[in-house]
Design a binder for these strands. Structure first.
Lengths: 155, 155
DNA sequence: AAGAATTCGTTCGTAAGCGTATGATCGGCG
DNA sequence: CGCCGATCATACGCTTACGAACGAATTCTT
């Protein structure tokens, strides 16, 4: 009665909907694993700059734009308002970005990179290029292009 | 002095290491976005079963194996001991898996699906197939195979 | 057999991620 | 003008995720 839906069912019978469903072959699982691997490589390589992937992305965007509203930044880096709030808070605590009130719109907070933020961003990008290379290392040149193209279609 | 490294620098000068570096074109960013999109589709479709991706994966694996040790399960579904602990705890709280002490090794906890767990797993797999389909929907058949193959190389 | 090294599960801390709710502010519309 | 809906930032709660440390138990080594 409580016999599991064994994938390697000795009787080979069709016991249930789990037949021929292998979690480890699903996109979701593979996507999660690939993301995990990238995150591990990121942390390892970015250690000296002490930035998480999200922090790095946010910082780079602030540096690139010079001035951004917090929610606007969140939209650009695909991070919802609740999450970007904490990220910005941590970047501010480290003095990497500054924050001023917008005279035009008293609701919004305008972010801008500090000198330290500019400096760290410069160093971090060098590391980030290494991370990208390390992540794609198992693929050859053609596969890398293909993979990025496919990823873009799924974003 | 605090001029940002604008990607679209009017002068076209080489201001710093951020030139020609676009965060949104990096594997890490695209991987994160694709993963986000999948998670959103998952949550939407799996709503009636009320399982997170990780909970679903763990439950399916327990059902598939019948009996597993907690850390062993974690290894199979790529979830570290600290994380699988909470996941299993929540599955137990919902009466989807049971837990017994292993007489052979008093350190380990043996997990097994309950009747409710078996039942829910069966229903959830149906939804999961839809999620996989929805996630890969933007790709044609050939692209799907290619994408999965590439993902596997990066896991 | 005794000690060392490893493994198992747990706990704590930190971070991301998102749903939901809230107060403040802004924009539009009658 | 006044109201309503939308937007901005924030707060709380819950889940995943992982490093680090821990006690208990097991296994390996000498």
């Amino acid at each position: 009665m409580s016999q599991p839906f064994l994938a390697t069912d000795p009787a080979g019978a069709h016991r249930g909907p789990l037949d021929s469903y292998l979690v480890e072959d699903q996109v979701g699982f593979l996507l999660r694993r690939a993301h995990q691997r990238h995150a591990a490589l990121f942390q390892e390589t970015m250690a000296e700059a002490d930035l998480t992937p999200t922090q790095f992305t946010a910082l780079i965007k602030v540096v690139e734009l010079g001035r951004v509203t917090q929610n606007q930044l969140g939209r650009l880096v695909a991070t919802d308002p609740a999450t970007i709030q904490g990220v910005v808070q941590r970047l501010m605590a480290r003095g990497l970005v500054g924050r001023t009130a917008d005279p035009m719109d008293r609701r919004s907070a305008v972010l801008a990179p500090t000198e330290a933020g500019l400096e760290l961003a410069g160093r971090a990008v060098v590391l980030a290029r290494r991370i990208t290379a390390a992540t794609l290392e198992p693929l050859d040149a053609a596969e890398r292009l293909g993979f990025l193209a496919l990823l873009r279609k799924l974003s």
